[in-house]
Design a protein around this nucleic acid. Sequence first.
DNA 1: GTCTATAGTAAGATAGAC
DNA 2: GTCTATCTTACTATAGAC
Lengths: 192, 192
Amino acid sequence: MYGMEAKTRLVESARELMWDRGYAATSPRAVLDAAGVGQGSMYHHFRGKEDLARAVVEGNAETMRAQVDRDLAGPGSAVERLARYLRRERDVMRGCRFGKLAQDPDVVASPVLGPRVADMFGWLVERLEVVVREGQAAGELRDSLDAHRVASAVAATLQGGYVLARAAGDPAAFDSAVEGLLGLLDTARTTS
Amino acid sequence: MYGMEAKTRLVESARELMWDRGYAATSPRAVLDAAGVGQGSMYHHFRGKEDLARAVVEGNAETMRAQVDRDLAGPGSAVERLARYLRRERDVMRGCRFGKLAQDPDVVASPVLGPRVADMFGWLVERLEVVVREGQAAGELRDSLDAHRVASAVAATLQGGYVLARAAGDPAAFDSAVEGLLGLLDTARTTS
DNA sequence: GTCTATAGTAAGATAGAC
DNA sequence: GTCTATCTTACTATAGAC
């Protein structure tokens, strides 16, 4: 963290703290201490807390889109690709960087942060929907299923899995939810 | 709110504020203003913010257990009862009173609040699991399904549905997720 | 029981030196 | 560009009068 310039260190420190504590609970003071820079440095590079968070969110969005694309656009059938996405190794107890923000009233109310979180989830569900449709076109998944709704259920199970895991204090709760959904998805295949 | 004694007004005010803002973001100051009482009154009836939250959570737990039992223990097949639970009218944009707490680091870290939230979700998943097993015993749901995992997926979809709705700023995202799961549950029925 | 006054700490941001 | 000092406001809690 100390081999970078101050601006980069600020964003990286904020990224870690926001992942753990969310937006509202991440104070500029804590970010500065973690980055090892003074306050003046932050207010030189950013307009304030919200602007720093914007930089964090933009970086996270790029990373997440790339990860999702890797899982969903790779080889395999539709269900195999959904399974690869759902079962990807995750830092379950830290939660989803975006799901955490969506729960924060300050984020949703922010004109700069709110739309970015909304866009991320809108994109994700659309992306999942495409995979479901491909599965239907290939005759793998039943045509009777509503692709958008199934995609929404997949995204929701993931987000809810994080909630259950944090509530239980046990990552296994996340795995149970994911495997439960995959079990149901398996019954929705035309081939068996 | 003003027809009750101060202690009751404090709990009710805190309940509303915590539903909207969560635990950490709900200040005693805001609760006192909403309840229309002074600070001394609160510190007479409660040991502090955490103790007041405990009273709120205990009341919420009772309410939620009663609601879930009404939905799941009533008449109908297993899938019908799960659908009644999932489709029950909800204040989607306000979210789940317990899911919100599970996401709050201060709550999870609290020895008095954390276990209460954990117990609530543990009880819920167990309760859903019983319904799935009943469906299997009745020959309605496939025996190949893991009841615990399916129950976890149901609970997770609900919690994740709230996340998607808040991110999108649209309750319809919640409905899509719920209907997506119900669509998958329908394919898991042995009868059609 | 309920109130106001006040304490001590931390939040988020600004000013101005270097 | 980066620093420290300072400002204003809010938080959670305590003290002590009524």
